[in-house]
Simulated assay, not measured.
Amino acid sequence: MDLDARIYVAGHRGLAGSAIVRALGNAGYRNLVVCTHAELDLTSQAQVEAFFQSQRPEYVFLAAAKVGGIQANNSFPAEFIRDNLVIQTNVIHSAWASGVRKLQFLGSSCIYPKLAPQPMPETCLLTGPLEPTNEWYAVAKIAGIKMCQAYRRQYGFDAISLMPTNLYGPGDNFHLDNSHVMPALIRKFHEAKQRGDHQVVMWGTGTPRREFLHVDDLGAAAVYLMQHYSGEDIVNVGVGDDVTIRELAETIKAVVGYDGEIVQDLGKPDGTPRKLMDVGRLSHLGWRARIGLREGIEQTYRWFLEHQGDFRG
C-alpha cells in the first residue's frame, strides 16, 4: 500500500479496529476513511453500497463485528449470527463491486473445533463440532472466510483472512455482564480492591488455557499482512503461548494490587478447554508478537484507570 492510499477501516471504534487505525498512523498512512454507526449502518445493504460508490477506498480492513463473551453469545444467539453475517456480506460484496484493490477480513479463533488439536493449525477448520457457547458467532465468521475465498476464486478479488486469538488492551469492553475474561477480571479485582472485599469470584474451574494477544500487536500484524501477504489460506495471528485462567487471574490480581482471595463459581461454564494458536504460518511470513502478557496487562490497567468514568454497567 502506498502511504497516500485511500484506506477504509470498518469498525474503527472497536478494540481491533482502533488498534489498526493506530498501527496505520504509526506506519505513516494518513488517508484513512472512517465512519461511525450513526454515519453508516453496515447492516444496511443500500447504505454500504452508496458508501463504497461515493468514497471509493482502495483498501479495506474489515474489523466491524458484533462481539461479546460467553454470556452475551448465549443470551443473544440470533443477533450474533444475523448481524455478523449481514455486516461482512455487505462490506465484502460492495468492496469487490466498487473496485477495492484488497480487503482484509478479521475472523476469530473460535472458528476452530472445540476439541481441535493444540496448538490449532489453520488446517483444522471445519474438522469437528464447534464450542456451543459461541457457535453462532463462529458460524458467521466461517461464512466470512468462505466468502473471501469464493470471491477470490470466482472474481479474482484479493481478499485475505486473519484469525486473531483472544485480544485485550486499550479500548476493551469492561462491562461486567458481556465482556471477555481479561477485562472482566481487571474490573472485578479493581472494584473489589476499592470496596475492601475479601473475595473475588471467578467463573468456572480456572483450568482452561487461553492465549492472549495485545491488540496493538494485532494492529501491527494486520498492517504487515496487508502489505506482505496475498493468498486464499487463512492466517492465525497469536503469540504461540498460553496460560490457565487461574494464572491469568493471579497475574491481574498482582497488577491491580488486590490482597483478597480468589474463589471459583463452579456452576459457571468453562468454555473450550484450550485455545492456543499455531502461529507457524505467521512466523514464516516474517511477523512475531512483541508485547509480553504482564506488560500488556499493566498497560491495559493504566488505560482502565484513565477511562473508568466512561464505563456503565
Rank of each mutant, 00 (worst) to 15 (best):
1 M>E: 05
4 D>E: 09
4 D>G: 15
5 A>W: 04
5 A>V: 02
7 I>M: 02
8 Y>P: 07
9 V>E: 02
11 G>Y: 06
13 R>V: 07
16 A>H: 05
21 V>T: 01
23 A>M: 07
28 G>A: 12
31 N>K: 11
39 E>V: 14
39 E>S: 10
40 L>T: 10
40 L>Q: 09
42 L>I: 10
53 Q>A: 14
54 S>V: 12
55 Q>V: 10
56 R>I: 11
61 F>L: 09
63 A>E: 01
70 I>A: 08
73 N>T: 01
73 N>Y: 06
76 F>D: 13
78 A>T: 09
81 I>M: 12
85 L>Y: 12
87 I>G: 04
89 T>E: 14
89 T>K: 13
92 I>Q: 14
92 I>K: 05
93 H>Q: 15
94 S>E: 14
94 S>I: 12
100 V>S: 04
102 K>L: 10
103 L>K: 00
111 I>H: 06
112 Y>M: 02
116 A>G: 10
116 A>Q: 02
117 P>G: 04
122 E>R: 00
124 C>N: 00
124 C>T: 03
126 L>S: 10
127 T>C: 14
128 G>P: 01
128 G>M: 10
129 P>R: 02
131 E>S: 07
134 N>C: 04
134 N>P: 07
134 N>V: 03
137 Y>R: 04
141 K>C: 15
145 I>M: 13
147 M>L: 15
149 Q>W: 10
150 A>R: 15
150 A>P: 05
150 A>F: 15
151 Y>P: 05
156 G>M: 06
156 G>I: 06
158 D>H: 13
161 S>R: 03
164 P>H: 01
165 T>K: 03
168 Y>R: 03
171 G>I: 02
172 D>N: 07
173 N>A: 05
179 S>P: 11
182 M>C: 12
184 A>N: 13
185 L>T: 13
185 L>R: 06
185 L>D: 04
186 I>F: 07
188 K>P: 01
191 E>D: 03
191 E>I: 08
191 E>H: 08
193 K>T: 13
193 K>C: 07
195 R>K: 09
196 G>S: 09
197 D>A: 12
201 V>T: 07
201 V>M: 05
205 T>Y: 11
207 T>Y: 12
207 T>Q: 13
210 R>D: 03
213 L>P: 00
217 D>C: 08
223 V>N: 02
224 Y>M: 06
224 Y>H: 08
226 M>C: 11
228 H>S: 15
235 V>E: 00
237 V>G: 05
244 T>W: 01
245 I>G: 03
252 I>K: 04
253 K>N: 07
255 V>H: 00
260 G>Y: 03
263 V>W: 03
263 V>D: 06
265 D>I: 08
268 K>Y: 12
269 P>V: 04
275 K>W: 10
277 M>K: 09
283 S>C: 14
283 S>Y: 12
286 G>E: 09
288 R>N: 14
288 R>L: 08
290 R>T: 11
290 R>M: 08
293 L>P: 02
298 E>S: 01
301 Y>H: 08
305 L>K: 11
306 E>Q: 14
306 E>V: 11
307 H>C: 03
307 H>P: 06
309 G>P: 06
309 G>C: 10
